[in-house]
Simulated scan of single mutants.
Amino acid sequence: MRRLSAVTIADILATGRACADAARPETLRYFRKAWTEADNKAGPGAFDPVTEADRAAERAMRAVLAQRRPDDGILGEEYGTSGGTTGLTWVLDPIDGTRGYLSGTPTWGVLISVADSHGPLFGIIDQPYIGERFEGGLGQASLTGPQGVSDLATRPPRPLGEAIVLTTFPEVGTEAEGRAFRAVAGRARLTRYGMDCYAYALVASGQVDLVIEAGLQTYDIHAPIAVVEAAGGIVTDWRGGPAIEGGQVIAAANPAIHAEALDILAGALSPGTR
């Protein structure tokens, strides 16, 4: 991880918050409106929606970055990659959970992170409708919301049989990945679905023990990595390696339950899916 000056750190924190502030009204402008429409980015037989809210929120964040940090790179879900010269890249997911957004559920969020070649340095999980903002990295591990500001901290170890596990889609991924997930979930006390990025915020705030997902993209996971790890958790792929490129991801509240879940995942996966 690169060493950043205090001035640069302060500017990154302020810029990330400015991006979140700019995205909030753009997402809320279209939320729970009967006329909100979605285009399908997937092929026939699948549904990967994108709305004008997604596009407007990313444009708003890119405008902030163009003004405040024009020499940094950008990787955004809707408008792709823009090169930079500083070695830092902003990774933007303007609405993580567009399916939930279209359904009117409130747990979708805006994901913002800044990364170097080793991975995310700082991330924000912003929940515009709920009014909660989770920050992690560069000395930050905090939640700002309706009840004020509080520190983030993951929960201490407890056996998997007492744990809460979250994932977004019941099918998780491929048939083999779903089978591996169910091998873990079947031993947990409670499993819940449909949280999108809010699941990682709940790990960071000490509410749940594990999030296990598959088929993620880089922009889905960079901000959650920063927030969860700043709060004391661990985020890897299902083999225990880096998760910065997405794919199969496990976020755990602590190393003990991470190791327990990884062991079950490894035993359930066939060699061809590891």
Score class of each variant (00 low, 15 high):
210 L>I: 12
196 D>A: 15
205 S>W: 12
222 H>Y: 09
197 C>N: 07
224 P>M: 08
200 Y>D: 04
191 T>V: 13
221 I>L: 07
227 V>P: 09
187 R>Y: 13
218 T>N: 15
195 M>Q: 06
206 G>W: 13
191 T>N: 05
205 S>V: 13
189 R>A: 14
186 G>Q: 15
208 V>Q: 08
222 H>E: 14
222 H>M: 09
200 Y>C: 05
215 G>K: 01
206 G>H: 08
193 Y>T: 02
225 I>N: 00
195 M>F: 15
190 L>G: 11
186 G>P: 08
210 L>T: 04
194 G>I: 03
195 M>I: 14
197 C>T: 13
226 A>E: 00
190 L>H: 11
216 L>A: 04
225 I>G: 00
189 R>S: 12
190 L>F: 06
229 E>L: 03
219 Y>I: 04
192 R>H: 07
212 I>E: 14
223 A>V: 07
220 D>P: 08
190 L>Q: 11
223 A>E: 09
197 C>S: 15
194 G>A: 10
205 S>I: 11
188 A>R: 08
219 Y>Q: 02
209 D>K: 09
203 V>W: 00
227 V>M: 08
192 R>N: 07
188 A>W: 00
201 A>Y: 01
197 C>G: 14
204 A>H: 13
186 G>N: 09
187 R>C: 06
224 P>L: 10
201 A>Q: 10
209 D>P: 15
190 L>I: 13
215 G>T: 03
188 A>Q: 07
210 L>K: 02
188 A>C: 10
210 L>F: 11
190 L>T: 14
220 D>E: 11
224 P>T: 06
203 V>I: 12
226 A>I: 02
221 I>V: 11
221 I>W: 03
209 D>W: 05
193 Y>Q: 02
221 I>M: 03
191 T>R: 08
196 D>L: 14
227 V>E: 03
203 V>S: 11
219 Y>M: 07
188 A>D: 14
217 Q>N: 09
214 A>Q: 10
